[in-house]
Design a protein around this nucleic acid. Sequence first.
DNA 1: ATTATCTACTAAACCTGTTTAGCATTACCA
DNA 2: TGGTAATGCTAAACAGGTTTAGTAGATAAT
Lengths: 337, 337
Amino acid sequence: MKKKLSIVDIANSLNISKTTVSFILNGRAQEKRISDELVKRVLQYVKEVGYKPNSLAKSLRTGKSNIIGLLVQDISNHFFATIARRIEDLAYQSGYKIIYSSTDNDTQKTQELIAMFRDRHVDGYIITPPDNIEEDISDLIKDGFPVVLFDRYLPKVATDYVVVDNLFSTFNATQYLIDKGHKNIAFITYSSIQTQMIERLEGYEKAIRQSKLKPHIIEVDFHATDQEILKLILDFFESHKDVDAILFANNHLGKCGLKATRKAGKNVPGDIALIAFDDYELFELYTPAVTAIAQPIDEIADNVIKLLMERLNATTPEEKNQHITLATELIERDSSR
Amino acid sequence: MKKKLSIVDIANSLNISKTTVSFILNGRAQEKRISDELVKRVLQYVKEVGYKPNSLAKSLRTGKSNIIGLLVQDISNHFFATIARRIEDLAYQSGYKIIYSSTDNDTQKTQELIAMFRDRHVDGYIITPPDNIEEDISDLIKDGFPVVLFDRYLPKVATDYVVVDNLFSTFNATQYLIDKGHKNIAFITYSSIQTQMIERLEGYEKAIRQSKLKPHIIEVDFHATDQEILKLILDFFESHKDVDAILFANNHLGKCGLKATRKAGKNVPGDIALIAFDDYELFELYTPAVTAIAQPIDEIADNVIKLLMERLNATTPEEKNQHITLATELIERDSSR
DNA sequence: ATTATCTACTAAACCTGTTTAGCATTACCA
DNA sequence: TGGTAATGCTAAACAGGTTTAGTAGATAAT
């Protein structure tokens, strides 16, 4: 095991001060009037022996880490995993590393994770905020950390965010079902105060209201197991035999919905039409293929990173916040034809 | 913004030395003969003002970080995402945080990531190794870092690992198809020198050989796109009309296989029976439901963490390595009936 | 000749903890 | 009473970088 070299070793080997080495390695040679000849000699030697500065020491002194903290609701969920993956790649290209973790929508866990990230001197934050986290996020911002939210935002917190046009998406999907002649359209969602969920509900309600139809809303507890969700939906089928279409507020509910319709022996779309929010391969390959509201995953990731990089590279803290709302796409498939 | 407290602030406020504070906070009060009265006073005050030691400074001095580096092939793949999620939870319970990243099976990227992890003073490593990474992993081990591999292992590197019984799994699945009367069973895999892939191929070949059947093996390049894989399979269907069963070497190939059989208009399992390695919800919900070799995801994660924790807590470096091989389960569904 | 300016560096402080070595007191013992 | 041991705590070194403040010597300006 070759012992790791330190900047002092480099300085000693070249008989110069570690200050000089530090200046050169940080590109401040010109500014500090280090001769070109010495710069070349140091760079050459450093390359030769493969010296890499200890980033802990660096972070300790500078307060910067070149690390971005990414907090998603659940990394094992396809939507978040894919976005996380792309964010990771993009950040990497800009010289940043990512630390990520799942919040589980658990406020306390999120608080602990934020504390850990702060402690680790993370440079910026990308977060899908759980409930009641406003204060912690505000503190981050107050303390000058760049924060970008996505998927949802916090109305009471002024910060950058990237979301999709949830209200229009469900309005449009519901209208689509109405246009197909469906009269009893149900909406299955989580009971949540998060913006994306509220907006999706509003979009549904707006379309239903406009057409003077009767709303059917099932709210599922966020911590309900798949079994419980399944049972809830099956019970709903029992008590609402007239429902002829369902809109699911996210991919997980959609998946449970598929299980439920199958178990109930419903013919899709003959007996009942289905539309899910957030497309993924299951909906594409399922028989019959499921109509879905596809979120622009790559675009979301691209914009999140773009906003964060702008803030990280800004010399003065930008005062006004940027809010990006992206369009979704209704992908029509067999389940709603 | 309240400025972050340092151990010096604590010491000054209490008019004692920061050494004393450090000893107390690290539970070395008894050993260092600090009076119980003072211990109580310090602990009380620290709690009161909410002081948390700066972990960067701590890591810099001690060389320990309470962070585990997790390198999986692709975090957006369901199998890895789920394992990563569970590993994260388990590590968290033991007081460790996880930094994870995707290797993409790219050797150079993996080397860079390992360098970054080392640099960040990560305490231990969990890795699904790509090709040609033997030397880097050996270096880690030589330098005393706990390393646990999973999903595959490196025959030339002596370390702990957790894998499944790949050979038996595919042997068993192939035999299952043979018992059903299939005569022309194909195996679709990646051209890979990784142990898990080699073993899966061997299991298939062994069963085919025992029954004196003719092997049909398609090897797909790891970097092939879904489109290319699809085309390859469709071409294979064209040129091998007699094939009546396919075993896929992993979930992604299985997914492409579903698309292919659908596109080719094949009746499953009438025309052709399918079995996929590595179960997930798509296979469960697809019509017809796909028979799959289910890996014990939770058990894999549990054992990986168990092995790593044993090494992390060991006072002396354990000489002999532990190799854990877990059983898979063949989940019979419609696609092979 | 003296002062100012510039060049090319560097010593020492700093970031925030941990760890080593050691220093007063008091207690104990012969 | 003098020597040893135990008690209770601390100063300073250390981890490995960055940054501030400054220095020695050469050149230019007054």
